[in-house]
Design a protein around this nucleic acid. Structure first.
Length: 426
RNA sequence: GGAGAUGUACUCAAGUGGUCGUAAGAGGUCGCACUCGAAAUGCGAUAGGUCCGCAAGGGCGCGUGGGUUCGACUCCCACCAUCUCCGCCA
């Protein structure tokens, strides 16, 4: 959510800053909604003041044993009017609030101009695209040949865009997950949390998935309650601190978390239909930080490096791109994508997104900090990034480390977790 | 599933229908004394959400939402959360 005072006092700048975003929103309604609310508020507050003054008078008169009938008469009427006004105010309040939730974040000035992902700017590369002395297979063909990836059975028990992993495939997914978590906790200093996979509507709103992207989320009901399956651990982990004032000495707070992630992928019909790249349910280890505003861009660099590090340790070639205006998500002020080399696609494929949301989520979720109780609390900056997507890592390992005979060599660092050096061909 | 209790500022906590929520008290924070230094102790000081307003000032805020009343932290109802006991299941 944007700072409402920024819109009031620097409307043109905001308008300009949001102009190159590839999002639909309507700034023109702001002034009307804001003024309606403020005018109503001024009126009702004047009435309430009158009521409070009269109430105090009653207290005084009662003490002196005086009669209050005239005040009661007058107040009875006034109370009814106030009640009407209150209803109007909360209506205007809700309208403004709802509207504010539809406005995207203001991009950082250093975000490159551009319309689509084709305009993202490559920052650096690690390794070279894997060269093969034979015709490499796609991971879905490899997975089928090795008997470790089974989308057909998943389709039978659930539907499309799901996978059953079998034997070494299941083990590989689990090995990668544990390797990521261990590395981020032991080497990079994150504190692991294991949150619920279902969250409330408030949590989804706090991180910005709602109200705009409801069609992308899975809703679960039962016991008369409504929950959402987490689309990313960002949601439960960021909301751990919702409505809290953190102590400045605790910052930066750094968490890593494994969750399954659930996405409806509405609007992606026909894309990436084969393999592990685009699933309704996938595994991910997420990195989440809460920082002081002045630290957040340094912390974004570090977070991105932490995500890159696990790919380096695995020996996977990747590149880092800086996301341009048109491709920046609704909530991010700046974002880097890490893209792993995927031989079957013949290009780099996103495996991590690392974003600084600045105050945008903190404002929605009401997360503040201060160093001393005497200080006014300020919004923290929130950041997160995949560290990294597990399913896509499985795909990348299968493809990049496949051998001519159809076997797959397990990266050194995973072997302790895998209990084997190579997934043998059948 | 049954019975009961609790929910007030960063934390603990007093307050049971009226003019005290910049809310008693305490922790906390800061200063001074004591001390080689620290702890402990004593004395003193200090701050405390949010919205409207240029300001003066005002509104709201006692888990959330309703209701009763001229007036609600205080009474009633619903919901949420936490705790205790019983039952049930591992």
């Amino acid at each position: 959510m944007l700072d409402i005072n920024l819109l009031r006092n620097h409307f043109e700048e905001v308008e300009k800053a949001l102009a190159s975003r590839n999002e639909e929103f309507d700034l023109s309604r702001f002034h009307e909604l804001d003024e309606t609310r403020r005018n109503l508020l001024a009126e009702v507050e004047a009435l309430k003041n009158k009521k409070n003054v009269a109430s105090r008078e009653v207290g005084v008169r009662k003490k002196n044993g005086q009669d209050c009938a005239d005040i009661f008469e007058e107040m009875k009427e006034l109370s009814a009017v106030i009640k009407e006004y209150d209803a109007k105010v909360s209506e205007a309040d809700a309208a403004l609030q709802e509207y504010m939730l539809t406005l995207p974040n203001i991009p950082n000035p250093t975000v490159p101009q551009g319309k689509s992902d084709e305009d993202n700017v490559e920052i650096r590369r690690y390794g070279e695209p894997t060269a093969f002395a034979f015709e490499p297979k796609a991971h879905w063909d490899l997975g089928a040949a090795l008997g470790i990836l089974d989308p057909e059975t998943a389709a039978k028990i659930t539907g499309t865009r799901f996978h059953v992993y079998r034997g070494p495939g299941a083990r590989l997914e689990r090995a990668i997950t544990n390797f990521f978590l261990d590395t981020h906790t032991e080497k990079h200093g994150y504190t692991e949390v294991f949150p619920p996979f279902m969250v409330s509507r408030d949590s989804m709103t706090g991180t910005g998935q709602l109200p705009k992207f409801e069609e992308d989320a899975y809703k679960v009901t039962g016991d008369g309650k409504e929950y959402f399956l987490v689309p990313t651990a960002e949601v439960p982990v960021t909301n751990m601190y919702r409505n809290q004032i953190l102590s400045g000495s605790d910052l930066p707070i750094m968490h890593c978390a494994y969750t399954a992630c659930f996405r409806a992928e509405a609007g992606s019909a026909g894309r990436d239909t084969r393999g592990l790249i685009r699933q309704h349910q996938f595994n991910k280890v997420e990195l989440v930080k809460f920082t002081r505003p002045e630290q957040s861009y340094d912390e974004l660099e570090k977070l991105t490096r932490d995500a890159e590090d696990v790919l380096q340790m695995l020996g996977l070639p990747y590149r880092v791109v800086k996301i341009c205006m048109g491709d920046l998500g609704f909530t991010a002020a700046m974002k880097y994508d890490i893209e792993v080399w995927m031989p079957s696609y013949g290009r780099y494929v996103e495996i991590s997104s690392c974003s600084n949301f600045e105050e945008f989520q903190a404002r929605r979720a009401n997360i503040k900090y201060r160093d001393n109780v005497k200080e006014k609390a300020r919004y923290v900056h929130t950041l997160n990034g995949s560290g990294v997507a597990v399913g896509r890592t499985t795909a990348a390992i299968l493809e990049n480390f496949q051998q001519e005979d159809g076997s797959v060599v397990i990266p050194e660092v995973l072997r302790p977790y895998m209990g084997m050096d190579v997934i043998p061909a059948k």
